[in-house]
Design a protein around this nucleic acid. Structure first.
Lengths: 236, 236
DNA sequence: CGGAACATTGACCCATGTCAAGTGTCGTGG
DNA sequence: CCACGACACTTGACATGGGTCAATGTTCCG
């Protein structure tokens, strides 16, 4: 077996596209379906950096932000996990990041030992987990390219597009959605302050690319133009 | 087997600490030792984003920068690989980043098929590769925390410390070393311009924390203070 | 209705980017 | 051995994107 134990894991593209939604094998699915359902309140931690990595978790409803913090409190959100995503995969031992609910969330818990057993029974599951980890790595690197090299507008546009694409992938409206996370979460994800995030949303609204009926609801009205900004077309 | 094929991979801590130095299993070691030795000239690409991922590579001498570029040329270096490191691991199919020599470099090449076979013969190798991938993911996330949240001084100090630690780990002088990469590579790694990198080196010199006999040679004279700056102690 | 938390907006400032000279340092060819 | 050119690096002057601080709005819930 190759899987050993938890830590954060994910699995798709860049930003919000969340963490691994791989369709996993039946034995594992079955165990998970019977796993303990746990509720995490808004802002509560599912696990923290340094915790023993005893379980893996699948998000059922809600959303989780995976983050790391510096000694002085500066925070970097590494990714968001949405329903269907699996988190807690990684190296043996301790979690290396915090998993915090951005809204009330339900997760199914599966002990690492049960996961190990599933892998022993079905080696293909091991391969899938490996590939999910590789995808997660690729996604994290894309995010690095974004936070390291792009302007505020490019970052926010990329973020919205990524969220939109994910929505489409899971069969929801790609042009009209609700962001579960706060401006602070978005800022810590993109490496911007909440003021800059807010100003950038306003700017996109002013440019006529999005509408914001209320602060967490986004309607994308010109996805082409948004894509242009994300790709670095000269900004208005 | 769980390994399928290449893509970038790495394995230790934050910044320069390079990519995976795992001591791998004997059958694999043996194959690698007999693998083709290839020389890459300074600035030449070992592989590029989009190339078929046909081989994995172990650095013998020199250094490689793994990077991604935006359409307009902005570049993000994701990590550096040093002798002993293995690169090219990851998901099936295509490489997702460029591997460019920062100086004349020699690598051993191993076809993915041979790696697969080794894994089939020795499942423990699969586990090791999985763990290496997980470490690489953790390292990339640490780097994100650095480029996303830290100031120029903190980034450069962290970079130097990480390089120093790596040197120590491989039994070389942690206080006196030669940086194989250019200021441009460092800048693209840390998300800074070359001017800012240069100025920050000068500042650290002025503060008496390092000496720079010539631009690529670094002597760390006050590692404690350097650590302080990296950790965000108020700057001078 | 009141207050807490989050979001928006404005004014100002500063760290870092940009642009522009220099200043080594190295390798090549005379 | 020296001259030259090519790079890489350093340093300075200036510009600016985004951070900081502060006031105001909005939403939601008790």
């Amino acid at each position: 077996m190759l899987m050993s134990s938890p830590q954060a894991m994910a699995g798709r593209a860049f930003a919000p596209p969340s963490l691994m939604s791989a369709r996993l094998t039946s034995g594992f699915e079955h165990k998970l379906a019977h796993g303990v359902l746990r509720r995490i309140e808004c802002r509560e931690l599912l696990f923290a950096e340094g915790d023993a990595a005893s379980h893996v978790y699948r998000i059922e409803t809600g959303a989780i932000a995976l983050n790391k913090v510096l000694a002085d409190g500066r925070r970097q959100v590494i990714g968001f996990a949405y329903p269907g995503d699996l988190i807690g995969l990684g190296v043996e031992g301790e979690h290396v990041m915090n998993a915090q609910a951005v809204k009330a969330t339900r997760v199914r818990c599966l002990p690492v030992s049960a996961l190990r057993q599933s892998i022993a029974e079905d080696p293909a599951l091991g391969v899938k987990l490996y590939e999910a980890l590789a995808r997660e790595l690729a996604a994290t690197r894309d995010l690095m390219l974004t936070t390291g090299q792009r302007s505020a507008v490019e970052r926010v546009a990329s973020f919205l597009l990524a969220f939109s694409r994910r929505n489409q992938r899971v069969g929801q409206d790609p042009a009209n959605f609700e962001l579960p996370m706060t401006r602070t979460d978005i800022g810590d994800f993109l490496g911007l302050t909440i003021e800059t995030v807010s100003r950038t949303f306003s700017k996109l609204k002013l440019l006529g690319l999005i509408e914001l009926p209320c602060s967490n609801r986004v309607k994308v009205t010109d996805i082409e133009a948004l894509q242009g900004l994300a790709d670095g077309a000269q900004e208005a």
